[in-house]
Design a protein around this nucleic acid. Structure first.
Lengths: 331, 331
DNA sequence: TGATAATGTGGAAACGTTACCACAATCTTA
DNA sequence: TAAGATTGTGGTAACGTTTCCACATTATCA
C-alpha cells in the first residue's frame, strides 16, 4: 500500500506538501496540487487513518456493546447508534456480550486498547463499580439501564411500563394476572417484575404469581404450559410476559392446548418488536423507541467526546402501550 | 493515558524491557517482570493497538457492510460474522448501506483508510467492476451474491429456492400463483423472480404474473390488495412473495379483506426470518441459514487474510422449504 | 524603495509501539 | 579454564502521518 512518501517521491515534492494537499490546509501552488493529486491517483494512495490517529489521538471509532444483535429488540438500537455515528464521521465496532459479564469486560478492554473514543453500552450486566474500573476514563452512554455514578444514561421506565401493562389487563377485566419474568440477573427484568407486583397489590384481586424464565420464546412457551395446566380458581386468565419473545411463546402455548389468546387468556408483552404486530392474536405490548434511544445515546456520546466532563445526562424515554387483539375479550 | 515510556520510567527499566513483558517474549528477570507489571497496574496502562498496528501492519479489524441491520434477515448473518471474528481476536465494524451504491462505496473507502484487514459484503449492490476498483487489494467475502472475478462468495441458490417455493404451491393444489417481487436492482430479487418464472412455465397453468414491490411489509400489503381486488378466473389463489416481510404484508392484506390465508390464498415467503413462525397463519417459507453463512463467510475471510491469494472459494448453502399453515388448504 | 505580508516549500520531531542489534554477566561443558 | 551458550537489559530505527518551524520568493503598500 502506497504511503505518503511514495506520493511525495512520485510528485517530486516533500512529504509536507503532500500532507497539505491531503488535508487542504496551508499554501499549495495550484500546479503542485495537481501533480500531487495525480500521483495519489496513480498509486491508489489512501491515507492511513491509523497513522493519523497516532498523531492526532483521534480514531473516529466508538464501540457498541449489546447483548445480542440477533435478538429482535436490539437491531433497532444498533441502527440508531450507527446512523448517528456515521452522520458524524464515526464508525461503530459491534460487540455481542450475550449478557455475560466476562464478555462485556473482555470487549471493553479490547475497545480501550483499540483507542475507541467511547462506547454505547446496552443492557449492561456488570456491577457498576466493576464496570467503571475497566472502562476507566473512556466516555460512555448506558442504554436501558441507569448508571448511578458516571456516564450518561438513556432508558425507559421499565417498572412503570410493567405497571401500566398489568394495570391494562385488570382494566380490560382480567382478574388473575401471572407474570413470566426474565432472568433476575438482568436489571430490566427485575424492574418489570416490581412494576407487576405494584399493580397486583394495588388492585388486590390476588397474590402476585411469578414464574421465572429466560426472555426466550421457548422459555415463555414452557412457562405458559406450566401456568395453564392449573385448574380451578387459581388458574390465571391473563399473562404479562417480561418481553415480547416470551409473550410469543405464550401464544404458541395457547395454540398448543387449544385456548384462545385474548379471549380465554389475556397476554401482554414488552418491547414492541416488529413481529409483535403479526402474531395471532396480535400482541398487546409496551413499545420502547429503540431506534430513537440508540440514536440519542450515540449523540450524547459524541457530544461528550467533543466536550467532555461538563455534566451527566439522564433521559427517560416514554414507552407506549400498544393495545392489540391479545387483550380483547371479543374479536 | 499512560504510555510504555511512563511504565518504563516508573519501573526503572527500558522501554524494550516493558515491551518484552507485555508481549511475553525474550528474556526478562522474574523480579523485573514483577516490577513492570506493578508499574503497569499503578498507571492503568493499556497498550495502544493503534501504535502496534502501525508497526505490525495488523489491526485485527474487519468490516461488515450489510444493507440494514434492522431488517430481520440480517442480524443473524451479523451475529455469525461477529462470533467467528471474536473467536479469532478480530473486531467487526458495522456498516449499514441501505442498499445504496454510494453508501457502500463510502463505507468501503472508510474501511480501507482505517486499514481494516478485510470486509464481509452482504447483498452488495454495486457493479462488480466498480466494486473491485474501490475495494482494491483488500480481501473480501461476498454473502448472498456470487462475485465473478474476485473474492470468495457464499450464497443460497435464490433461483432454485424460488422455483421450489412456487412448485410447492402448485403441488399443494393451488392453480394460479402471483409473484410479488423485490426491487429489480437487488440481485437476489431477480434470481427469485426467474425461479418463479421457471416453475410457472413448467406447470403451465397460466402466464407469469408479477407485481414489483420493495421487500417491505407495507409493500407486500399494498401489492396483495391490488392482486386480490381482481375478480373472476384471473384472480390468483396463491402468492409467492419475494421475502418474508412482504409475505407478512400479504397476510395482513388477507385479514383486511376477510380472506383466509392458507385456505383461500396460499402464501409462501423467502428467508425464514424468526417471526415467520409466529404469524397467523404461520408462514411457509424458504429458510436461509443466515448465521451459518455469516460465520462461514468470516471464516473464509480470516483464512484469506492469513493465507492470501491461494484460491477463490464459492459456497452455495442449502435452503430449506419450511412447510407451514399458509400453504395448507385445511386448518 | 524598503518594510511587511502573503505565498510556497521542505526538514524534522513527535505520536506509541516493536524488532533488531549490541553488550554484559552468568552458567555449562569438555 | 577457556570457549560457547544462556540470560538479561538497553538503545534506536522504523511504521505513516501531522505539525511546527525555517527559509525563500513574490506581492502589497505607505
Amino acid at each position: 500500500m502506497a504511503t505518503i512518501k511514495d506520493v511525495a517521491r512520485l510528485a517530486g515534492v516533500s512529504v509536507s506538501t503532500v500532507s497539505r494537499v491531503i488535508n487542504d490546509n496551508g499554501y499549495v501552488n495550484a500546479e503542485t496540487r495537481k501533480n500531487v493529486i495525480n500521483a495519489m491517483e496513480n498509486l491508489g494512495f489512501r491515507p492511513s487513518n491509523i497513522a493519523r490517529g497516532l498523531v492526532s489521538g483521534k480514531t473516529y471509532t466508538i464501540g457498541l456493546v449489546i447483548p445480542d444483535i440477533s435478538n429482535p429488540f436490539f437491531p433497532d438500537i444498533a441502527r440508531g447508534v450507527e446512523d448517528e455515528a456515521i452522520a458524524n464521521n464515526y464508525n461503530v465496532i459491534l460487540c455481542n456480550s450475550d449478557w455475560k459479564v466476562e464478555r462485556e469486560t473482555m470487549y471493553l478492554s479490547l475497545l480501550i486498547e483499540k483507542r475507541c473514543e467511547g462506547v454505547v453500552l446496552v443492557g449492561s450486566h456488570s456491577e457498576e463499580s466493576d464496570l467503571l474500573k475497566v472502562i476507566g476514563k473512556m466516555p460512555f452512554v448506558s442504554v436501558d439501564r441507569e448508571m448511578v455514578h458516571a456516564g450518561h444514561s438513556v432508558w425507559v421506565d421499565n417498572e412503570f411500563g410493567a405497571y401500566t401493562a398489568t394495570k391494562h389487563l385488570y382494566e380490560e377485566g382480567y382478574k388473575r394476572v401471572v407474570h413470566i419474568s426474565g432472568p433476575p440477573s438482568v436489571r430490566s427484568a427485575n424492574a418489570r417484575l416490581s412494576g407487576y407486583k405494584k399493580a397486583v397489590r394495588e388492585f388486590n384481586y390476588h397474590e402476585p404469581q411469578i414464574i421465572e424464565s429466560d426472555f426466550r420464546t421457548s422459555g415463555g412457551y414452557e412457562s405458559a404450559l406450566k401456568v395453564l395446566e392449573q385448574q380451578g380458581d387459581s388458574r390465571p386468565d391473563a399473562i404479562f410476559a417480561g418481553n415480547d419473545l416470551m409473550a410469543i411463546g405464550v401464544i404458541q402455548a395457547c395454540e398448543k392446548i387449544g385456548i384462545k389468546g385474548g379471549v380465554d387468556l389475556g397476554i401482554v408483552g414488552f418491547d414492541g418488536i416488529g413481529s409483535s404486530a403479526y402474531t395471532s392474536p396480535s400482541l398487546t405490548t409496551i413499545f420502547q423507541p429503540g431506534y430513537e434511544m440508540g440514536r440519542r445515546a450515540c449523540h450524547l456520546l459524541l457530544d461528550e467526546i467533543v466536550n467532555p466532563g461538563k455534566r451527566r445526562i439522564k433521559e427517560v424515554f416514554n414507552f407506549e402501550l400498544l393495545v392489540r387483539a391479545s387483550t380483547k375479550w371479543i374479536k
